[in-house]
Design a protein around this nucleic acid. Structure first.
Lengths: 329, 329
DNA sequence: GTGAAAGCGCTAACAA
DNA sequence: TTGTTAGCGCTTTCAC
C-alpha cells in the first residue's frame, strides 16, 4: 500500500501538501494540486484510516447492539441504521448481545478501544453508570435506559390499548394476554395497556396474563396454559408478533379456529406477520423510521457533542389482518 | 482515557515495560509486573487498539458482506460468523450489498482503509480482479467467485434432485420450477438439478420453469403465471424457501389446496418455513455450520497467509413437512 | 530485566 | 502557497 510519503515523493511536494489536497480544506495551487492528484491516481493511493483515527481520536464507526439479529424485528432496524450511517460516511458495526449485560459491556469496551464514535443500544439490562464512562454518545432504542440517555421508542401503552379495544369491539368476551419479559420496559407498558382496558371487567382474572418472554416457543406454551385454564377465551393480545405466531401454533395444535373461535392480535408489524396463515392483526411500529431517527440523533451528537437531545416517541398504527374477525350475530 | 505513558509514569517504569506486561510476551520481573498491573488497575487503562493497528497493520476485524440482512437466510449466517469471530477475538462487521457490485466494492475499499483483516462475501457480481488487489484473505460463501477464492457452499444439484424426486415419488405428474436469478451459480445448479430429473418426461415443457429471482413477491407472480399456463401442475419446486412462501401465497389466492391439490418444496431450511401454514417441505442447508466454517477458514488464513485452502461443500438434508403429501389411490 | 528511541501513516501548528 | 516537524499511542529493536 502506498503511503502519503510515496505520493509526496512522486508528486515532488511535501506530505503536508498531499494531506491538504486529500482533505480539501486549505487552498492549494491548482498546478500542485493536479500533480498530487496524478500521483494519487498513479500509485492508487488510499489514505490509511487507522492513522487518521489515531490522530483525530475518532474512527467514523458507529455500532448497533441488539439482543439477537435472528429476531426479525432487528434486521429491518439494522438496515435503517446502516443506511443512515453510510450516507454520513460512517461504517456500521452490528453486535448481538443475547440480552446479556456481560456481552453488552464487553462489546462496548472492545469497540471503544477501537475508537468507535457512538452506540445505539437495545437493552434492558445495561445501567447508566456503565455507559457514562465510555465517554461517547449513546442512543437507546426500543427500550429506555435512563433519563440521561436519549431514547427512540413507540407509544406502547396506546398501541396495547388499541389492540385490546379492537378485540372488545369485534365482540370478544374474554381476552387473555401473553406478555414479554418483566424486565423490559416496553413489555411492561404493553401489559399495562392491556390491564388498563380489561381489569375492570368482571371476567378478568390475573391468571389471564401469561409470560411468553418475547419468544415464540415460550409463547406457544403460554397459550397452551391459557387454553387449559380458561377454555372459553375468545381473544388474545400477544406482546409481540413473534409471540402471536407462537400462540397461533398452539391454537392450531389445539384445534381452535382462528379467527372464528378466537382472535389474535400481535405487536410490532414485522413482515413475518403477513406470512402466517392466518396473517396476524397487529400494532405496527415504524421500524425503519425508528432506526433512522436513532442513527441521525447519534450522528448529530457525535458531530456536535453539545447538542441536547430529547426522547422521541413514535405513534403506532393498528393493522387489521386475518387473525381477528367480528363475531357473528 | 489513560495512555500507556500515564501507566508507565504511575508505575515508575518505562512504556516499554508496560507494553511487555500487557502483551505478556517477554519476561518481566514479577515485582515490576505487579506495579504495572496496579497502575493499570488504578487508572483503568485500556490499550488503544487504533494505535496498535497502526503499528501492526492489522485491526482484528473481519467483515461479512451479504446481499440483504432482511432475507432470513443471512441473520443465521451472520450469527455464526460473529460467534466464531468473537471466540478468536475478532470484531465482526456486517454489510448489506443489495447485490450491487458497486456497493460491494465500496464497502471492501472503505473497510480495507480501516485495516479490516479479511472478508467473507456472498456475491454473484464481484470478480476476482477486484478482490485480489485488496491484498487480504477473502472467503466466498454460498456462491462461488473464482477458483482462486476458497468457497463454502452446499451441494445444490443433489439437493434439487432430491426435492424433485420426492415430488415424483409422492405421485406428482407435472412438476414446475420457480428459479433463482440467472447470474447466481447456486440458482443455476438448482435449476439444473430440476432439469436433470424432469427433462426426459414427456409432460415437461421449458415454460414450466419461471424465474422468481429469489424474492417472495416475484415468486408469487411466477406461480400465478405457471397456474395460468399449466393449470394441471401438481408439484412445484421453488429455488429457495422465500420463493416457496411466495408460491404458497399465490396458491392460496387461487384457491388451490396445498398439499392436497398441489405439493410445494423449497430450499434452504430457514426457520420461516416452519411458520407458514402449511409448513414447507424443504432441502435444509446447515446454515450455521457454513458460516462457522467460512469464518474459521478466513481466520486461519489471516493467522497464516501461507495456508492453502480447499473449497468446502456441505451436504443438504431433505426435510419433509406439510406442504407435500402422497397422492391418494 | 529494563529503558531510550525510532517509527507505523497521518494531521496540524508553525515557519518560511 | 508550501514545507518542516511534532505528535496521536503503541510496539519493538537495540543498548545497557
Amino acid at each position: 500500500m502506498a503511503t502519503i510519503r510515496d505520493v509526496a515523493k512522486q508528486a515532488g511536494v511535501s506530505v503536508a501538501t498531499v494531506s491538504r489536497v486529500i482533505n480539501k480544506l486549505e487552498r492549494v495551487n491548482p498546478d500542485t494540486k493536479q500533480k498530487v492528484l496524478d500521483a494519487i491516481e498513479k500509485l492508487n493511493y488510499k489514505p490509511n484510516d487507522v492513522a487518521r483515527s489515531l490522530y483525530q481520536r475518532k474512527s467514523k464507526m458507529i455500532a448497533l447492539i441488539v439482543p439477537d439479529i435472528t429476531n426479525p424485528y432487528f434486521p429491518e432496524l439494522a438496515r435503517a441504521v446502516e443506511d443512515v450511517a453510510n450516507r454520513s460516511d460512517y461504517t456500521f458495526v452490528l453486535c448481538n448481545s443475547d440480552d446479556s449485560e456481560q456481552k453488552e459491556r464487553q462489546y462496548m469496551q472492545v469497540l471503544r478501544q477501537k475508537q468507535v464514535d457512538g452506540f445505539i443500544v437495545v437493552t434492558s439490562t445495561l445501567a447508566y453508570e456503565h455507559i457514562k464512562d465510555l465517554n461517547v454518545p449513546v442512543v437507546a432504542l426500543d427500550r429506555i435506559i435512563d433519563r440521561k440517555v436519549p431514547a427512540v421508542t413507540v407509544n406502547n401503552n396506546d398501541g396495547a390499548k388499541t389492540a385490546v379495544q379492537h378485540l372488545l369491539d369485534i365482540g370478544c368476551k374474554r381476552i387473555a394476554h401473553i406478555s414479554g419479559p418483566d424486565d423490559v420496559d416496553n413489555a411492561m407498558q404493553r401489559k399495562q395497556g392491556y390491564l388498563d382496558v380489561v381489569s375492570h371487567y368482571e371476567w378478568f382474572e390475573p391468571g389471564m396474563v401469561q409470560n411468553g418472554d418475547y419468544h415464540m416457543d415460550q409463547s406457544e406454551q403460554a397459550m397452551m396454559k391459557l387454553l387449559k385454564a380458561y377454555p372459553d377465551i375468545d381473544g388474545v393480545f400477544a406482546g409481540n408478533d413473534l409471540m402471536a405466531v407462537g400462540a397461533l401454533k398452539a391454537l392450531k395444535k389445539s384445534g381452535k379456529k382462528v379467527p372464528d373461535e378466537i382472535s389474535v392480535v400481535g405487536f410490532d408489524g414485522i413482515s413475518l406477520g403477513e406470512l402466517t396463515t392466518p396473517s396476524i392483526t397487529t400494532v405496527k411500529q415504524p421500524i425503519y423510521k425508528i432506526g433512522e431517527q436513532a442513527a441521525r440523533m447519534l450522528i448529530d451528537k457525535i458531530n456536535d457533542p453539545t447538542t441536547e437531545q430529547e426522547n422521541v416517541e413514535y405513534d403506532v398504527t393498528f393493522m387489521e389482518r386475518e387473525s381477528t374477525k367480528r363475531k357473528e350475530g
